[in-house]
Amino acid sequence: MTALRFVYDCDPGADDALAMLFALGRRDALDMIGITCVAGNVGLEPVLNNARRILELASRQDIPVYAGAARPFMAPSGKVSIMHGSDGLAGSALPAPTMALSDGHAATELSRIARAEGQLHICATGPLTNIALALLLDPELPKFVSTITLMGGAAFCPGNTTPLAEFNFAVDPHAAAIVFDSGIPITMLGLDVTRQAVVTDEMIHEAQKIGTPVALEAAYLLINYGAKDPCLHDPSAIAWMLEPKIFTTVAGHVSICTDNGAAAGQVVAAVSERHLAGRAPNCTIVTGVDSTAFLELFLNALRDF
């Protein structure tokens, strides 16, 4: 089996860090060829530090890390999440990174890498500012991106930042709108499914039993982040890339509300023939997951280090 080559666009954040470890443990199936960072869960500087801290823990300093957007399109600064602690990794004892950032802005590097690859897969688990900026800078980029797998949105359930919007889309609704209007095939793992992928005591105990530095750090994050938000939001996107058969989905046309106020970032998902009104679906909306299979998939990745 040929490993899926992809760029990871993220805002680490504890659940992004767990997603990174999840993917890095499965080198047989996933080949992370670059990381593009965006401000989100915390500001850009700690996000960049955290991405490199996790790579160094996993002994993967070969993966380049690029700095991206420090703010959303239409606001001087973005929302941050209180769930991840002031450092973004729930007070982790991981040392400061020693590897250098790679040259180039995340948006231009996404374009460059996509053109070099010919058909690039992007996995995005933060605000979509970098990808939207890349699309604006390079209008032909959709020709070179095969698919985007993203964590974000709330299609058929309440939001977690406002009653209507999930965090990533609420941070930069205009970026999300640009991405969904791009014509690139998108798989969206929003709160509809990620609230079903929850941290369990069994998952924590098994990670502790594995006992490697990677597994123990994962256990730390599961305990300390999971106490505030027990949902494995970002690792769900990695699980989809590994085993889509453990999920249920529905095809739909997704648009994003960019109005000011509580609706900013709201997903409007049309799935019935009546609501589609002749529009073609632009998104695979993930709605369910086999949580037992998810747990085993995640733990097996930790065992593979």
Rank of each mutant, 00 (worst) to 15 (best):
E140L: 15
D138N: 15
K143M: 13
G126N: 04
C10Q: 13
V289Y: 10
F305K: 11
I246A: 11
S272K: 04
A170T: 01
P281W: 12
L232V: 01
Y8W: 11
T129A: 13
D192L: 11
S77N: 13
T147D: 15
D201K: 11
F305H: 14
I54F: 08
N168F: 09
P230K: 13
R53A: 01
R53Y: 04
E140V: 13
R26V: 00
M99W: 06
I54K: 05
A197D: 10
G211H: 08
A177S: 14
T200W: 10
I35S: 04
I63T: 02
G252L: 03
L189Y: 02
N130K: 10
P95Q: 08
L302K: 01
A239G: 12
H253S: 05
P213A: 15
A165C: 07
C37Q: 14
A90S: 15
F144P: 02
D62S: 09
V199Q: 09
A176R: 05
A96I: 02
L128W: 01
G126Q: 06
V268M: 12
E296Y: 08
G34H: 06
D103P: 06
A90T: 09
L216S: 09
T194K: 03
D62F: 03
D192W: 02
H253C: 01
P185T: 01
E109K: 12
P97K: 12
A14H: 02
P142T: 05
P76L: 14
Q119R: 11
L164W: 06
T125N: 11
G252T: 04
F294V: 01
G226P: 02
V289Q: 08
T36L: 10
D229L: 11
R5E: 15
E117W: 00
C283P: 04
L128I: 04
L48T: 07
F305Y: 10
A197N: 11
S236W: 03
E140Q: 13
A269W: 05
L191W: 00
C257N: 15
H174V: 12
A75F: 05
A251I: 04
T292R: 15
